[in-house]
Write a protein that binds this DNA or RNA. Structure first.
Lengths: 227, 227
DNA sequence: GCATTGAATTGAACACGTTCAAACAAGGGA
DNA sequence: TCCCTTGTTTGAACGTGTTCAATTCAATGC
């Protein structure tokens, strides 16, 4: 897997070929799934040679990053409107998680197939990878908005870390969703409905005298390990 | 990936060939890593044809299950002796996590390479898969022993679930360990040292009046989703 | 002994992701 | 007009995991 030319500016023609290939890939991925879609098929569908697709994309996995980014954008849009009018933290968190399930629903079949690759933490598709950093940060920002625009009462030390922790919770929900074979992802929605009040109660608890110490220790440990 | 004959009883000769292949695979995995070890090389090393290795193992990933099981056995042995004399819950938990890091240390380089495959939740190598069930249950039993032989004070409702939750914690440590590039896995040992007192304090907290309700809700949600 | 049957074994063939040397295209000096 | 450079495009070839029809082996029944 060698690096691929990623100049800040690309010739219009090149940009268009790139798009053509990415679009063809998306079509086939959705139609047949990730594994059953061959690079040769993508090249054919795009009307381009096999080697050429490797000129534009470093490998098969990279062809899916576009999907990643697109979903993040869709989520941000859906969340933005739904967030208006919700002032309670519970409500805002619920909105974020629910809208994600809604937005992702059409891709459940396909995503289940390639998230299995994305679970590999060394893959560029991993949500923790450098390649995913932009999408990850955009998503974290969403949770930051949910916190900041709300009436949340939480231990002050925790407040700054909360968006990242919520993003982590979100990843947990995604993991559950990937394996959720129930119709319309009913079980994932159940999980969200149950987990949101739990989290809000937990955050409130962090202000209890006996609990605050533990919270500080947790944050201290996290800080230590981040170095 | 078709199924492979896994009769309860196997002819001695067959059993031996199976072992020969598994051993050859282990040697090469350790020497070159998972990815760089080819199925053809394994067949050669075992003095067997390529096709034959597929007669005994359904695929490359299955060749690593032996390693999994072996490590579980080593851990159980190391933990058993070290557990004697430790009565405190914190001490016992610490022993379990520390011995694992010790036992796994020689395989850190290799394991890092194939755990990337194991992270795939649909892979038979996933710790959640049916194939891993025996090793998983043996490991959970270890944590059950740590709980039962100790002076732990915890909300009664939680006590029964604790072994599985601790196993989950263990998986978290493993995930951290896989990505830990520090010499001698220093950072993972730091994590263990920090996380053990935290967990013990948290379990004690579950008996607080204000906290107990949340614990019950968590357990309720888990129960709901397990159906 | 011999035939029959099922397990064990083989190596060629397949499909796939990926690489690469070569060819092509388009512009811009001389 | 010719050449040189730079970006683009090509398809053959490679290495890999996996499959499979064919073959050999070994035990069992007669």
């Amino acid at each position: 897997m060698t690096t691929v030319p990623e100049p800040a500016t690309r010739s219009p023609k090149a940009e268009q070929t790139r798009r053509t290939i990415a679009d063809a890939a998306m079509r086939l991925f959705r139609a047949r799934g990730y594994d059953k879609t061959t690079m040769r098929a993508i090249a054919d569908e795009a009307g381009v040679s096999l080697g050429n697709t490797y000129y534009y994309f470093a490998g098969k996995e990279h062809l899916v990053q576009a999907f990643y980014d697109q979903m993040q954008v869709l989520h941000a849009e859906a969340a933005a409107t739904a967030l208006d009018g919700e002032r309670s933290f519970a409500g805002r968190l619920r909105v974020l998680l629910d809208t994600w399930v809604d937005v992702a629903a059409p891709y459940h079949g396909f995503a289940g197939q390639f998230f299995q690759n994305a679970a590999d933490p060394t893959s560029p598709l991993s949500p923790f990878s450098a390649e995913s950093a932009p999408a990850r940060e955009a998503s974290t920002a969403l949770f930051r908005r949910a916190v900041e625009g709300s009436d949340l009462k939480v231990a002050p030390a925790l407040r700054a870390e909360l968006p990242e922790l919520l993003w982590l919770l979100h990843m947990g929900v995604v993991l559950f969703w990937v394996h959720d074979a129930s119709p319309d992802q009913r079980r994932t929605r159940q999980l969200v409905a149950g987990v949101v009040p739990l989290v809000t109660r937990l955050t409130r608890l962090t202000r209890l005298p006996g609990v605050r110490g533990v919270v500080d220790d947790v944050l201290g440990l996290v800080a230590t390990l981040r170095t």
